[in-house]
Amino acid sequence: MKEGNNMSNTEHTHSHVKLLAVVFTALICLTGITVAASYIDFGSPLVNIIVALGIASIKGSLVLVFFMHLKWEDKLTKVFAFMAVPFVLLFLAGDIADMMIKISEKLFLN
């Protein structure tokens, strides 16, 4: 693909279908991997969930970059695509931290 396009959609000189098919195959493989990984005991459910979310994030990135063709979008679209992500993480981090503190206080006081 050409770099430095001036409009939001780059010139499509050829079809992306082959690339999309490769991405689809990768997504199916990753689904298999995430199911297989869930049966492995990594020692703690926390590690398991981190592995599962890690694989989910790789799959999500593939969908965003290729299926939603963010790879070929301009900067403005990319900014808006990820606009909500830091706020979602902030939202989650605040709540999880609160829960963790409450649990550790309980353990400490007992």
Binding site: T34, S38, I40, D41, F42, P45, N48, I49, A52, L53
Partner: peptide, 9 residues
């Protein structure tokens, strides 16, 4: 993964 695989091991 969050719902179906959460409890697996």
């Amino acid at each position: 993964p969050l719902l179906y695989l959460a409890s697996k091991p």
